[in-house]
Design a protein around this nucleic acid. Structure first.
Length: 448
DNA sequence: TTTTGAGTTGTTCGA
DNA sequence: GTCGAACAACTCAAA
């Protein structure tokens, strides 16, 4: 009898899953396996653990409905799988490729030790498959997107009718109740809800006060929905649909940058900014983390991050820009903090976007493009509703006052915004300081 | 090989 | 308030 193991990692679904399809088509009997890796699990923020555990439970019940169970192991993944292969006599392990440096090292070890059949199921176009004429990967999004759009998708395999193994292995890991409904059926419902309003997406996607974004980032992170399914459901002619599909392409773009340049997980992609003289500012960093910078939109975003493990995309840029450009703190500290707390936290996506904001990365914003936290607030949260939701100290201020509480008179300030801090840094001064620091880094690099 | 056009998300200043 | 220019050069990707 031909036995195969499907090694689930960040692709926690059966629908539209190439590793699952390939295994069920090629094998008589399939074992669905997940290995809880202490290197990841033990360092994981509790709320993120709850998301993963919830998705594993859901995957287990989807399997149970088909007469199987999810086999769960705990330990170093390659060793654990090697033991499972030995015990079960499996001829092959099926898995979808992943992109972070840690995953790449793990998967290289797996390839060396196990008969792994790799498939691509985590991205619309697999990293490396969108290539320029010269065959290289891309570091600029626009030409990448042109090629991405023109490329016919490599077909994914159809699934077969293998018998499913029903041995659950160890217990599923214990965790809190997940903060959002887990599993692929819930993901499909979220997709359907977003499809109803996607036509507003182009117009309103930058507005954190409006509830318009897809909320699919967590599902795409853990693979409870496939990017192909998302594009299939949302592709179309309207500007909103086009704008959203473009965001899916950005996700592919950052994945292929990370595969091509894994060192950029921890160093600037642009060499001229590898040695920016970042400030050592533990107090400023703590104020940023706690949402007590005195800039209302920044504080609202950082408080939403702590409370929900999610931030609106526009606000992610604003808070990241504030840490890097206003406090002149190393982007890597902010990247790590945000990735830890985000339910959708992902090395390739988070690093790519942080380096973009910092101006150090692929297709980076020019260094002189520095977000003004007040202007962003006025433009994208015009009535201040998003701020009021997360910064209750400011709830009584008018739509005009709420973006700049420090301009109120001292009496009004004390009466209406009890406990809200005054700005920890002057934006105009901070801007000049950062321009100078980036210029110095560039000149020093050119002189070496 | 060389040339050419273009580049997610911004801000500030002065007219 | 609105508009255009400046901000800085560079590198990517395609022709």
């Amino acid at each position: 009898m031909n036995v195969g193991i499907v090694w689930f990692r960040r692709d926690l679904r059966l629908a539209d899953n190439p590793a699952w399809s390939a295994a069920t088509a090629a094998c008589d009997r399939v074992i669905a396996a997940f290995v809880v890796d202490p290197q990841l699990w033990d360092r994981c923020y509790p709320r993120r653990r709850a998301v993963l555990a919830g998705n594993l439970r859901s995957l287990d019940s989807v399997l149970a409905a088909r007469g199987g169970r999810l086999w769960v192991g705990r330990g170093e993944p390659v060793e654990t799988l090697t033991e499972l292969v030995r015990q079960t006599g499996a001829q092959a392990v099926f898995a979808n490729r992943d992109v972070s440096p840690y995953a790449a090292r793990r998967d290289e070890a797996a390839s060396a030790q196990l008969p792994v059949r790799w498939t691509d199921g985590c991205f619309f176009h697999a990293p490396g498959s969108v290539r320029s004429r010269t065959g290289t990967g891309y570091t600029v999004f626009t030409p990448y997107f042109r090629a991405w759009s023109a490329l016919a998708p490599e077909p994914w395999p159809n699934s077969g009718s293998a018998e499913l193994a029903a041995d659950p292995g160890a217990d599923l890991p214990a965790a809190d109740a997940p903060p959002l409904e887990a599993g692929e059926e819930a993901a499909e419902r979220r997709l359907a809800a977003f499809a109803d309003q996607v036509d507003r997406y182009a117009e309103e996607r930058d507005r954190p006060d409006l509830d318009i974004t897809s909320k699919l980032s967590v599902d795409l992170k853990w693979g409870t929905i496939s990017p192909r399914r998302v594009v299939e459901a949302l592709a179309g002619e309207s500007p909103g649909r086009a704008a959203f599909v473009r965001q899916v392409a950005w996700r592919d773009f950052w994945a292929q940058v990370m595969v091509a340049r894994p060192e950029t997980a921890s160093t600037a992609l642009r060499p001229e900014y590898r040695d920016v003289r970042w400030r050592h500012d533990p107090e400023g960093f703590a104020a940023w983390q706690q949402g007590r910078t005195g800039y209302p939109l920044v504080d609202a975003g950082m408080r939403q991050l702590r409370a929900e493990g999610w931030i609106h995309n526009r606000v992610r840029m604003v808070v990241a820009s504030f840490l890097v450009k206003d406090l002149l703190v190393d982007w890597r500290l902010g990247e790590r903090h945000m990735r830890r707390l985000l339910l959708d936290g992902d090395v390739a996506q988070n690093v790519g976007n942080w380096q973009w904001v910092a101006g150090t990365g692929a297709d980076a914003a020019p260094y002189f493009r520095i977000f003004n936290p007040v202007r962003q607030s006025q433009r994208f949260d015009p009535a201040g509703d998003y701020i009021r939701r997360w910064v209750p100290e400011l709830a009584d201020l008018s739509s005009k006052e709420i973006h700049t509480p420090w301009t109120l008179g001292p009496l009004q300030l004390a009466a209406q915004t009890p406990g809200y801090p005054t700005p920890i840094v002057d934006h105009a001064e901070a801007r000049e300081r950062t321009l100078a620091a980036f210029e110095a880094a560039r000149h020093q690099w050119a002189a070496e």
